[in-house]
């Protein structure tokens, strides 16, 4: 079976800084993989690379059968990928419902899927009609999550999804991830909530200093990079 993500010696340069200095990563369909590493290790860059937002400078990078070195067709890849990043991409002036509708429709989501996503993320009642500018950080994340859910992506890329969410929100997120995988999706996430994330994930990959070529045992890498 072809892997969903295949990175081999992948290097990504931001400016003149090699944010990724050689990443090997294989993710099979239906897997939940946790990326672990300290701040600045390159977890976010790996997720953004897999979403087709960054170029691969060297090495192999194939996501959902699309070679990232080939600049054409990136749009088709991005349609099939959902990225929940630090920035949510929400419009402050619009309400929660308007935002989810806009991003859902942009990805050809059915009206039913959009409404279901709003309900699944607990965005109902007065909250649904509130402008995003007046949301708390956690509510923003939920809204962004609803945008992602409504698109029903094949590959979920979640960057620190637990950050800013309360206990209910985290449970809700884990539930959504579980049901996404049950319906055939693949999930790669990074998290500092290690206990929770490790329980969720099938497998853990450690990244240090932009590379997966790490010479220390898992669990010790936090001492390496100041």
């Amino acid at each position: 079976m072809e892997s969903v993500i295949h990175l081999r010696g992948a290097v990504t340069v931001l400016g003149r800084f090699p944010a990724l200095a050689g990443i090997d990563l294989e993710v099979a369909a239906g897997e939940i993989v946790l990326l672990r590493g300290s701040n600045g290790a390159g977890k976010t860059t790996v997720l953004r690379l897999c979403a087709g937002l960054l170029p691969v400078t060297r090495g192999e990078a194939i996501v959902l059968g699309h070679d990232l070195a080939d600049r054409r067709g990136g749009r088709d890849l991005r349609r099939r990928v959902g990225l929940l990043g630090h920035a949510t991409g929400l419009y402050d002036e619009l309400t929660v419902t308007d935002n989810v509708r806009f991003w859902g429709r942009a990805a050809d989501a059915a009206a039913g899927d959009i409404d279901a996503a709003l309900v699944a993320c607990g965005l109902v009642g007065a909250l649904a009609d509130r402008p995003v500018a007046r949301l708390s950080a956690g509510q923003r994340r939920r809204t962004a999550l609803a945008c992602l859910v409504s698109r029903r992506p094949e590959l979920w890329l979640l960057d620190e999804p637990h950050a800013g969410l309360d206990q209910d929100g985290r449970d809700l997120l884990d539930g959504l991830v579980g049901s996404a995988v049950a319906s055939g999706a693949t999930v790669v996430l990074s998290s500092h909530e290690l206990e929770r994330a490790e329980a969720l994930a099938d497998r853990v990959v450690t990244i240090v200093a932009g590379t997966t070529d790490v010479s220390v045992a898992a669990g010790e890498e936090s001492f390496l990079v100041p």
């Binding site: 290097v11 090699p18 200095a21 050689g22 200093a209 590379t211 070529d213 220390v216 390496l224």
Partner: peptide
Amino acid sequence: VGALGLDDAIRARRAEAHP
């Protein structure tokens, strides 16, 4: 020159993972 610097930068960054 920029490309040369890049090789060094990649090596330096990778070395951080092998203290």
